[in-house]
Simulated assay, not measured.
Amino acid sequence: MKTSFESSDAGPDDVSVVSAHGLFLPAGIVQPFDLRFASDELHVIAYFQGHPEYEAVEAMIHRKGSAQTLVRAILTRHDQTQIDHVNDRTAHIEAQAFEGRQTVYREIEVDQEGRPERPCTTVRFLSFANEVIQLRVAAASPPDAARGGLTDPGGHSPNSSLPLMWRGKSCLAGPGTTVLIDEKAYEVGERIRSPQGFVGLNGFYTEMHQMGAVRASTRAFDVMHEPSQISKGSSWIYAGANGQEMRYVVTDMNLSGQIVIESKSGSRAERIWAEIHGQHLRLLKVERLGRDATESGFVVRFPAHGRFAMDVANNQGVVVGSASITHEVNGACEIELQPQEPHWAAARRVRVRICRVGNKAEVRTTVG
């Protein structure tokens, strides 16, 4: 049976219904979405011509509060599939659950030069195919908040994620931007040339880049502990396939039965708002926090009848659409989020299938 947030007088143990507000989850399940969030000081990208396999290379760079410069460099093929290259061991381990997206661990060099009003960044790394990649992006003008906002990902990796990429200050790449692969240069074409002599190339230089994403993945885990009665201090403990423990704890509760649940297991810092219905939760909102577990990051909300909204970088309703949930007689259920705005997000429908048999659970997320 499929419902779309229809009100019901059914009891709290009837998991075949959802209310006018929130998602009614199976017992023992706290947070079914595979959410990622990264806040980086810098994002650089160049689109180039002439290579038989690749058409773009980019890098997201983070320094604040880290012992090392953390980098995710991405190669995009002509068929729009992407390969991630990360220099963070934890990020590499977490990425192995992603569906349809290859991630490799690499040492990555970053050099910054130029003047503050015309910055320039160079990124060097060894690709997954052992090619020497060098990306140099020179800003065509001072990065400007007026050129910030939401990025359209185009057709890049359409089945691996629903990404919300928010630019703080941005500008076009300018002369001096280059892409070298095994020391061979590939042309970064002109995007704009004004009569006054301004030249902008097919790339971007962005300061303060925040990205939230729902990832396609399959996560299998054991439910090691769940509360018989949910109250403040109650906890859920899961053991992942790699033995990693995940713990969610009720940290706040009001008289109406609405609770706040927090998790700080490993790098997965999350805050969840829900209503109690027996041993089940009605999920109202999920927030994936930033690296320091304090800054607001990526939020998925269920604000009204059959609706969802996603917020990133303190901007609300960046992606909005319809939401529904299907409960099956075998106890499995499937959540569907169908984006409607912005237009490019409509092709990235999210489906989350939850199956639990005894203490064994699996959550599979597909995109597209």
Rank of each mutant, 00 (worst) to 15 (best):
K2V: 14
K2P: 09
E6Q: 12
S7H: 10
I29H: 03
I29N: 03
F33S: 03
I45V: 15
A46M: 09
E55G: 11
E58A: 07
A59H: 00
M60C: 07
L70V: 09
R89Y: 14
G100E: 14
Q102C: 07
R106Y: 10
R106G: 14
R115N: 07
R115V: 00
R118T: 01
L126F: 05
S141G: 11
P142C: 12
A146F: 10
A146E: 12
R147Y: 13
G149W: 03
P153T: 01
D182A: 03
A185L: 05
R193H: 09
P195H: 02
N202R: 09
H209M: 15
M211V: 14
A213K: 15
K232D: 02
A239H: 10
A241W: 12
M246H: 11
Q258G: 11
R271F: 03
I272T: 11
A274W: 02
G278R: 06
K285Q: 12
L289T: 06
F298I: 03
V300G: 05
F302Y: 13
D311R: 00
A313L: 05
A313K: 07
S322E: 14
A323G: 01
E334S: 08
E334P: 04
E336V: 06
P339D: 04
A347C: 05
R356C: 01
V357R: 13
T366R: 14
